[in-house]
């Protein structure tokens, strides 16, 4: 083949251009730390990168939700524990009042103490978490119990009004305890009847009995109190189980987060050592082609004719 000067020059420019393109690719990979800059660099990596980004963002959000749900349930658990303590005190006082040796005067004092515990119970029923009433079902902006009468101030449908937090794709957790479940022995809260739920009415019956000095009636109410205590224990067990589930979900999300972040990194981040080596390699090729090119385009016969 006949080789002309412009052929050499054209080819040299093309080769050096190609070298520079490859160096530019490695350079931008090193500068950004990413294998691809635009989807066309590798459409498969790009599509996977989008999916993994979404996954990681979702997991981040679910982790936040798990934390918030845990706080809510912790508040509920603390309140339930206080309610249990109140009921336990009432039960002890009732046992004390049922004794024949207790005088009427003592019974009146005990009645006054139970009256105080009743008020505490009502205020526990209106516990808030971040300004929201935790036992009010969906009506988190309204108090569950009337502060004086202890009647239900609102209706709460125990089976319907479950506040669900999303803690995974298609995975919801109920974070609230409905007021009726707690204060009406598993039933609904109903504001229309004008009567308080079983828990408060047991208090009321007890106070009435003690004020009347009726030890038998007070002692009969012990069964009711045991029933109430068992109901609270049932709910505490349920809340405990939910907290437990949240903990497990939280752990799983933590490891998911690590895994997906790693997958994301494997998918789109460059292997620095390899890239630096490739760049070094390209640089050598580039230098070699520059030095070869510089040699080949310079001389011609002109230089040797004297």
């Amino acid at each position: 083949m006949r080789i002309t000067n412009n052929m050499l020059i054209n080819n040299m420019v093309n080769y050096i251009g190609n070298n520079l393109t490859r160096m530019d690719k490695y350079q931008s990979q090193l500068a950004t730390g990413k294998k691809i800059q635009v989807p066309s660099d590798d459409p498969v990596v790009a599509a996977r990168a989008l999916k993994l980004r979404t996954n990681v963002a979702e997991i981040d959000q679910y982790q936040k939700n798990v934390n918030d749900a845990t706080s809510w349930l912790d508040t509920t658990e603390n309140t339930l524990s206080s309610i249990g303590d109140v009921l336990q005190s009432v039960r002890e006082l009732t046992v004390q009042a049922s004794s024949d040796s207790t005088t009427t005067d003592d019974k009146t004092k005990i009645s006054a103490e139970i009256q105080q515990l009743r008020t505490q119970m009502i205020s526990l029923g209106n516990t808030t978490y971040a300004g929201r009433y935790i036992f009010s079902g969906y009506k988190t902006d309204q108090k569950l119990l009337d502060e004086t009468t202890g009647d239900f101030a609102i209706d709460v449908d125990t089976s319907e009004e479950n506040i669900l937090y999303e803690i995974g794709i298609g995975d919801d957790i109920n974070i609230n305890v409905a007021g009726g479940d707690l204060f009406n022995d598993g039933g609904d809260a109903d504001s229309t009847t004008g009567t308080p739920g079983t828990l408060i009415s047991d208090f009321d019956a007890l106070i009435t009995a003690l004020n009347a000095g009726d030890s038998t009636a007070a002692s009969d109410l012990l069964d009711n109190l045991d029933n109430d205590i068992n109901n609270v224990l049932r709910i505490r067990a349920d809340v405990g189980a939910r907290t437990n589930r949240l903990e497990l979900t939280g752990n799983r999300l933590d490891s998911d987060n690590t895994n997906f972040t790693k997958l994301m990194s494997d998918n789109e981040d460059v292997d620095m050592a390899e890239t630096i080596m490739n760049l070094q390699n390209e640089e050598n090729v580039y230098k070699a082609s520059l030095s070869g090119g510089a040699k080949i385009i310079q001389p011609s016969l002109v230089d040797f004719l004297t």
């Binding site: 412009n6 052929m7 080819n11």
Partner: peptide, 23 residues
């Protein structure tokens, strides 16, 4: 590029060749 190369090979001016002709 390949066709351009063949064209340049065929029709391009070679300085060496021209210098030889000059002499």
């Amino acid at each position: 590029n390949q066709i351009t190369n063949r064209r340049t090979s065929d029709s391009g001016v070679s300085i060496d060749e021209e210098m030889t002709n000059l002499v």
